[in-house]
Amino acid sequence: MNTSENQDIDDSILQLELELLLEALVRQYGYDFRNYNKAHVKRRLLYRMQQLGLKSLSELQHHILHQSSTLAMILKDLSINVTEMYRDPSFYLSLRKEVIPLLRTYPYLRIWHAGCATGEEVYSFAILLKEEGLYDRSQIYATDFNTEVLDTAKKGIYPVSKIKEYTFNYQAAGGKNSFSDYYTARYDAARFDPELRKNIVFASHNLVTDSVFAETHLIICRNVLIYFDRSLQNKVLNLFNDSLIMGGFLGLGSKENIMFSTVQDQFLILNPNEKLFRKKIMK
């Protein structure tokens, strides 16, 4: 057998091991990564396999099934919790200018941050709502399927080393005050004002397997759909459509879209660059 045939066999075995491992995760633990982008999932799992000094994904699967510490690690590897405050300041600027004036017309607001990771995005928007005088009439749901990151989000404490960048972003996002009004710095930790948390509920929610949040006025779900294949993106966009009131708003990440999905006709494009959409009002 020549090397290229050998490689074909290795490849198909790897593919099989990958599918079996994902099957094990969903059957044993209910975490369904089968419709996540394969290149991403494979890369992260192979990386973990090497870090643990294992020789195959089958070995890694054995560890996942028999050691709960490995499961936690894998969830972290696959979920990618990288985030920041006011990521893409222009998105927040456009929320402020194009969405806030319309949200003002409602007596109360239900807002859902889906895939909020460690919460930086949630506090960013809470500050914006405060400055626009809408915070007190808002109920904010901040969800993620990774409970470890939600624990960090609940604390609202972030490294002081990031504050310089966040201050810059806050200003670029149209911030009205001094950013330092919103946190107290102690040693290397910046603790955000607990008042900001008053109307926020942090909760575990899996977009693949859990159900709708009814009667939502605004859903912000950024940099989560990029990890999903088209069919799963479509499913989650339907979930969002079902959760929004008529005339409700949807904000996605800069590289995400609804324009391929079965709900595209239900929405108007509010800002194509910032990926802001509004659910149509249908009689």
């Binding site: 982008n37 394969k38 991403h40 890369r43 992260r44 990618i80 990288v82 940099n223 990029i226």
Partner: peptide, 13 residues
């Protein structure tokens, strides 16, 4: 990233 079906994926890891 490149997928098996010759499409692109993006990640923010």
């Amino acid at each position: 990233l490149i997928e098996n079906d010759h499409t692109f994926s993006l990640t923010v890891e």
